[in-house]
C-alpha cells in the first residue's frame, strides 16, 4: 500500500511535468506540423536560466522571468530560423530543430560547464510537508503539483474561453481563412511557438531542481516527450495529457518494483539465474516508454486520442 501511494503521487507529479513539456510540443505540432526536436533543450534552458537568476535574485523571480526568457528565445528561433526553413517542408524543419538541439547543448556546456550545477530547491519550500506511512513527503513536490495544475487550468482557460484562444485554434486548422479575416497569422505562429517554449521553460524551472540540472537533461527528456506526444496522438492535447500520466505512472511504479522477470514468468519455466529471468522490472523502467510507443503504433497508429494516423 505504502509503495503504491508513493508511486502514484510521484507518478502524477512526473506525469504533470511531462505534460507541461508535451503540451507545448503538441501545440507547436498542430500549428506547424513539425515536431520541435529542440523542445527538451528549451526545458533545459529554463532550468539553467532559473539557476542563474536565482544567484542574483530569488526563486520566485526566477519562476516568472526564466520561462519568459525561454519564450523569447523560442520566438527568435521561430522568426529567424524556422520560418526560413518552413518553405522547404517538414523534413527540413525537423532537421533544423535537430541541429538547434545540438547547438543549445553545446552553448549550455560553454556557459554553465559540463557537470551538473547546484540548482537547489528554494529554502522556503525545503521542508517535509506531511508524513505518510512513517516517510516524510517533501513540500516541493506538492509545489510542483500545484504549479502544474495551475498551468493546466490556465492553458485550458486560455485556449477554450478567451478570444485569443479562439483565434489560435482557428489558426491551427484554417490559417488562410484567419489571415483573410485580418489577423497576422505568422505573428500568431511566433507567439504560439514562444508560448510552447515558455511552457517547456517553466517545466525546466520547477523540474530542474527536482531532478538534476546538467547538460544531459535535454537528451534524457527529449525522446520521452516525443513518446508522450506520439502515443497521445499527434496534435491532441487531451491525448498528450493521458499519455503523460500513463508514462509518468508507468515509469515511477516500475522503478519501485523489485520483482524480476523470473518472478513473474516463473510458471513458464523462466529461471531467475538465466539472463532474461534476472532482469528486474526496475531496470526495465527506462525502456518502458519506448516499448509503449512501439506497441501503440502497431496496435493503434493514430495514437490514443489522435485523429490523424501516425
Amino acid at each position: 500500500m505504502e509503495t503504491v501511494v508513493f508511486a502514484v503521487l510521484n507518478g502524477v507529479i512526473y506525469g504533470l511535468l511531462l505534460f507541461m513539456l508535451s503540451s507545448g510540443l503538441t501545440l507547436i505540432f498542430s500549428m506547424m506540423g513539425v515536431l520541435n526536436f529542440a523542445h527538451a533543450s528549451f526545458y533545459m534552458l529554463g532550468a539553467y536560466f532559473a539557476y542563474t537568476l536565482m544567484e542574483g535574485s530569488n526563486f520566485w523571480i526566477a519562476l516568472f522571468i526564466a520561462p519568459v526568457l525561454v519564450g523569447l528565445a523560442g520566438m527568435v528561433v521561430e522568426r529567424y530560423g524556422l520560418r526560413k526553413v518552413h518553405a522547404r517542408g517538414h523534413v527540413a524543419e525537423l532537421l533544423f530543430t535537430f541541429g538547434l538541439a545540438y547547438l543549445i547543448d553545446e552553448v549550455v556546456k560553454i556557459f554553465w560547464g559540463r557537470t551538473a550545477v547546484n540548482y537547489k530547491v528554494p529554502e522556503l519550500l525545503d521542508f517535509p510537508l506531511f508524513t505518510l506511512y512513517g516517510a516524510q513527503y517533501p513540500a516541493y513536490r506538492i509545489f510542483i503539483l500545484l504549479v502544474a495544475i495551475l498551468m493546466l487550468v490556465a492553458l485550458w482557460y486560455l485556449l477554450r474561453r478567451t478570444r485569443a484562444g479562439l483565434i489560435i485554434q482557428a489558426a491551427l486548422t484554417h490559417p488562410h481563412m484567419v489571415g483573410h479575416l485580418g489577423h497576422n497569422v505568422p505573428m500568431i505562429f511566433m507567439m504560439v511557438f514562444g508560448a510552447g517554449c515558455a511552457l517547456a521553460g517553466l517545466a525546466g524551472v520547477i523540474g530542474g531542481n527536482y531532478f538534476i540540472t546538467d547538460p544531459a537533461m535535454a537528451v534524457q527528456m527529449g525522446p520521452i516527450v516525443f513518446v508522450v506526444v506520439v502515443v497521445g496522438g499527434l496534435g491532441s492535447l487531451e491525448g498528450a495529457f493521458i499519455a503523460a500520466m500513463i508514462i509518468g505512472l508507468l515509469q515511477t511504479s516500475a522503478v519501485s518494483i523489485n520483482a524480476s522477470l523470473a518472478d513473474i514468468f516463473g510458471f513458464l519455466g523462466l529461471a531467475g539465474t538465466s539472463e532474461v529471468g534476472g532482469i528486474t522490472i526496475a531496470s526495465m523502467a527506462p525502456m518502458l516508454p519506448f516499448l509503449l510507443l512501439v506497441v501503440v503504433l502497431m496496435v493503434r497508429p493514430t495514437g490514443l486520442m489522435g485523429d490523424r494516423e501516425v
Binding site: 515536431l35 517538414h90 506520439v230 499527434l234 519506448f290 512501439v294 503504433l297 501516425v310
Partner: peptide, 15 residues
C-alpha cells in the same frame, strides 16, 4: 514516411 517514421525510428533506437 515523414515525421511519424522519424519518431518511430527514434523510439526504436532508444529501445
Amino acid at each position: 514516411a515523414g515525421t511519424p517514421f522519424a519518431m518511430i525510428s527514434l523510439g526504436v533506437a532508444e529501445l
